[in-house]
């Protein structure tokens, strides 16, 4: 099993003959003998994958890194956090995946935020199985617990990922209509209840 080691804004991966999948273009340096090749959209093979590719656009493209040595990955000086999965499902905004270990299965849905359209053409990825996922975020990730006692409300731009048995609903945010001028700020927020964890970033996308 390759070791994923996050060092603030860089992910170092030590490979001993195995391979990992990483966001295309994220390699900044490597030592040893490493091969890089295209790994497609990460959502199964064949026609289904081709369809997803066309619909989701370029929102997730992966490359496979195989060999013996160390690969250093980074993207846009974003923070890197490693999440361990133990036979479970992690739902992530596709563009925030930096790397996944082999054995994890990826499935891509072409609407972001689990079906909520934010008009940004995002895609959501579900990562299933046992292994490690390296996530990107603008500022360090804050994991928030969700339980029967405390549901949580999250700004859509701050949402990174979630795991567990969660229900997501939209709640109206501020009465933004009274605002003049541009700037982001979704007119709604996301409410999560159930049992699990929601990962947020202290910034907008």
């Amino acid at each position: 099993m390759p070791t994923l080691h996050a060092d603030k804004k860089v992910l170092h991966v030590d490979l001993m003959g195995e391979s990992i999948r990483a966001a295309q273009g994220s390699m900044v340096a490597y030592t040893g003998n490493i091969e890089f090749k295209n790994a497609g959209m990460g959502g199964g093979g064949g026609l289904r994958a081709a369809l997803k590719q066309r619909i989701a656009g370029e929102s997730i493209s992966l490359m496979e890194c195989t060999g013996q040595g160390r690969v250093s990955l980074a993207q846009n000086a974003d923070d890197v956090t490693v999440v361990d999965l133990g036979n479970e499902v992690l739902t992530v905004e596709s563009e925030l995946i930096l790397a996944v270990t082999a054995g994890l299965q990826l499935d891509v849905k072409f609407t972001g935020l689990q079906g909520v359209s934010t008009g940004q053409g995002l895609a959501t990825t579900t990562v299933t199985g046992t292994g490690q996922v390296a996530l990107l975020s603008h500022g360090p990730i804050i994991p928030l617990e969700v339980s029967g006692q405390y549901p949580v409300v999250v700004d859509p731009d701050a949402y990174v990922a979630s795991r567990g048995q969660l229900n997501m609903s939209m709640v109206s945010g501020v009465s933004w209509r009274s605002f003049v001028g541009e700037g982001s700020g979704e007119p709604f927020s996301l409410r999560f209840d159930g049992q699990g964890v929601v990962y947020i970033q202290p910034a907008e996308r």
């Binding site: 928030l144 549901p151 409300v153 700004d155 701050a158 501020v174 009274s178 605002f179 947020i200 202290p202």
Partner: peptide
């Protein structure tokens, strides 16, 4: 400021100051 809210627990409402 508008856009400062990242997440919250509890019962909180948000209204524009102009309102």
């Amino acid at each position: 400021t508008k856009g400062a809210m990242i997440a919250y627990y509890g019962n909180i409402t948000f209204q524009a100051v102009t309102a």
